[in-house]
Structures are given as C-alpha cells and as structure tokens.
Design a protein around this nucleic acid. Structure first.
Lengths: 253, 253
DNA sequence: TAGTGGTCTAGACCACTTA
DNA sequence: AAGTGGTCTAGACCACTAG
C-alpha cells in the first residue's frame, strides 16, 4: 500500500486460494474502517505489487467485493468503497427452505383430479376457460401440524410428462429442487404479503384474514408454453426474510 | 462442439466482449433445449477450440452461467445444466425501489424528537430501557396519498454524526442509497408480512389489520455498535416481489 | 499524458473423478 | 492414466478519466 500500513501477506501454502485471501484482507480493512465509504482503494497495479500476485488474481478479488456490493469500480478513476445500501439488498428463499427442508415436514396430497380451468388458471396457463386442467392440492405437515398449503394447476396434455413426475412428488425437497423440472425452461416466482382466504384458513386451521405469505410460481417449458401454476400459502408470523448489506462479519484478518 | 452442431462464432469487432458472447451462446443453446437439464456441457478445452478463445475467457463465461444458476460445475466431472429451481430464487428490493424511487414521492417528517427508549428499541440499539434516543417518524407521500410509513430510532450520542445527516434526509432516494451511511459498516434487513397496527393504519388512512409489508432495518457503525433501527410499513396489495429462475428470455443467438 | 480499470492470451500446475 | 474443472502467471492492448 502507499500509506505504509502493514498488509497481511498471501500464504501460498494455505488451503484458501490467494484471490480469497486478498478479498478477505481488503474486506477486513474496510470493516476496520481503514478504508471508509467514498475512499479509493489502491489501484490494481499497487495491489499486485503489495501482495505479490498477478493482475488477474487482483481482479478476481476485487470482482468478489463488487459482487458483495462493498466496493464499486469506476473505469478510469479507481475502485471506491460503498456505504451500505438498503436499495441493493436481496432476499433469498433459503430462509424459506430452512423452514421447509426440515425432514420432519412431509407433503400430503389432499386432492389430485381433473377440473375445468377457472378464469385465473386459464389465463395463467394460456388455455381456454373451462378447458381441462389438473388440480393438485397439498398440505405441508410438520408432524400433525399443517404449516403450508399448496395449490397447483397443471396443463392437461397426455403428451407432456410433467404430470406423473408432479404426482410422485410427495417429498417436499423434490418440489423445490426441481426434480420434476427436467422439462422446464424457466419459472417466474412472485412473493406476496396477503392473508388467508376462507378455504386456506380452513385447511390450515387458522382464522381467515390472518397475515400470510404467498409464493406464486409459474413454470414454462422449452417452447415457452406455461406448464404449471400454483401457490404456497403459510402463516406470516412464522417466517421472515433476512439479509445483510455492507460488511457483516466482525473485522478480522 | 463434438456433436457437429453449428456454433455462432465469436465476433471480435462487436461491442459485446467475447466472454459475454460465449455465455449468451451457451445460454441460448440451453434455452432452445439443445442442452437439457442434466446434460453435460462440452468441456472447457472443447469450448476453447470450438470458439477460438483462451481458457480464461471460457471460464469467465461459464462462471457467469453458474452465477445465474443455469449450470453447475463439478470438479473432475464436468459442467451440467440445471433444472430451474424454486429453492435458489432471490428477490431484490429493486422492486420496492421502482415503487419508491418515483420522484413524485417525497418523505415528509411527521415528528423528530428525543424520547425514552421503549423495551424493543432499547434492546435493538443496545441501550438501557428509558435511555434517551431520537425518534423520527416519516410519511412517504405520493402526491396527497400516503404510501409508506417510516418509523426510526437513532442512538442519542452527540459525538456521532448520524443524526444531522438523517434529519436532512427528506429525499427518499438518499434514505435508500445510503447517503447518510458514510459512518455505517453494515446493516441487517428483515422483510415481514404483517398487518397495520392501529397507529400505522391511522397515519396511512387505512383500516387496522389490512395486510402490509414491513421492512425492518438495523444499522451498525464501525465499532459494531447499533446506530439506527426502524421500519417501513406499506400496504401489501400495492407491491410484490418477482424473480425468475432458469432462462428467462426467449431463445435467441 | 499518465493512471485507471476492462479484457484477453497461452500457457502452467494442481485436485478431483472415473475407468 | 486420462479427462475435468480450479487457480495462477506475466505479460498485452484497449477505453476511459483526469490534469
């Protein structure tokens, strides 16, 4: 560094690769406040000579910090430390998964039959209202206690293999990890804050109007045709989504 | 490729760098179903010779697809196409930002004064119950219409510069982009599905019990001390979070 | 013009998997 | 042993920014 502050050297015998050590070292200096929001980091050339690594290695370390939203690079000017921002936070369904991946939770099929598509299902699945679709209702149980209600509609097409796979999916893990999705190209997920309908409340043994999460999913095949549409519904107060912006871990390294 | 299928060659005069062209090309092949979930991609060496680029360039392209959760690499085995997974979806606050970054929306300060910390605020801010803290209440208005209510508590410490910066923050943009956060190291954000309290409902002109989003935020300084704790509250039915898993865009390239 | 990040090359060595 | 991804080197040229 140009300021003469000691830098932790790279340990080439470590299991941790140099780019990761370097990223951790810079992250720690920011975390200790040695570089403050708005400050410019040493240039890549300086970092190269300070740590004795090649440019590509430095770039990889910096790229990692950029992904973490801890610094921002400006072409021709330098790399600058960012203040933690609410705006760029992301929440991931891992929180939901921790909740549901519990092996004690099982998916119980309440109903699986052919029905006439209602207006909304027909719209989502790009079929005509009244056309046959497959309806599957599941209850996700933790022991005796229902925790999520799942309602799903599948396009009724004997030439498509999705249905069998879906019906076989009683293990919740598969439902989420896409085991039945080998014929699917992409899906759109929407997270709503809502409250239980009468029907949902009855299934879950809750009061209608209780705050609820709704995770809606719509999957498409490789011809961009909708294949399935459904929603998970569960009590709001048992689940929240948490994330961190800025440098989460206490300063070290 | 080994199967003899035509590959789009790299255009070196394009504004789009080779690694991006290559990533797009592979993504398109997956999107067209030429590589299906579970299939192995050509090895990096094969991609190098097929596209006439160096190993690092191939790796960067593949790394991009890994980040997108479209493929997974397995050391010593190969790179494999993944089925779209619910489990790995992430939602980002950009949706909320689009909602709030509207220049017509302004933050109106309802109240800013020194109060005694209640139990919850004291706990979050690591002060004693009854200690002085600064309370700020804001109403986020779209024209005449209130859309979000914001309640925030700041540690009362004249040696800390945060307070002035926070009070000056009437522009909502700053509140989110961390303009007042130059002295902050990190923050924890939590997203709840909930419903309006009496007080919130009154402020927003809604009925108590209406479904609502709550975005809670807790920020720490460079000594890992809590600095501010607060929450945004808004109607649930005006906002949802959407994301995509798998290959979103129609096949091309 | 000098300094910065952005990209790429053409190899190298290693660790892991499979046969 | 052969093939795969994981990492790194030591440069190169370019585009952008600033004085």
């Amino acid at each position: 560094m140009t300021d003469g502050t000691k830098t932790t050297p790279i340990d080439r015998r470590s299991f941790e690769p140099p780019y990761a050590q370097l990223a951790r070292s810079i992250r720690a200096r920011i975390g200790r406040g040695e570089y403050r929001p708005g400050d410019r980091l040493p240039s890549e050339a300086e970092l190269c000579s300070a740590f004795g690594v090649s440019p590509m290695t430095v770039r990889r370390a910096v790229a990692e910090l950029v992904r973490e939203d801890v610094v921002v690079t400006e072409h021709g000017r330098g790399t600058f430390v960012k203040a933690p921002q609410i705006a760029t936070a992301t929440f991931d369904l891992a929180d939901l998964m921790r909740h549901l991946a519990n092996p004690e939770i099982v998916a119980h099929i309440l109903e699986a039959r052919i029905v006439s598509a209602g207006r909304r299902a027909a719209d989502k699945l790009a079929v005509k209202e009244g056309d046959h679709v497959i309806s599957i209702k599941r209850l996700l149980l933790h022991g005796e206690e229902p925790v999520f209600y799942h309602s799903e509609y599948l396009v009724f097409d004997p030439t498509r293999p999705l249905v069998e796979a879906e019906l076989a999916t009683t293990a919740l893990q598969d439902l989420f990890s896409g085991a039945s999705g080998a014929g699917l190209k992409y899906g759109r997920l929407t997270l709503h804050a809502s409250s239980f309908t009468e029907k949902e409340a009855a299934q879950l043994g809750e009061a209608p109007g209780t705050p609820a999460w709704v995770l809606e999913h719509l999957f498409f095949d490789f011809d961009d045709r909708p294949e399935s549409w459904g929603r998970f519904v569960g009590r709001a107060d048992r689940l929240s989504f948490t994330t961190t912006v800025g440098i989460a871990e206490p300063a070290g390294g």
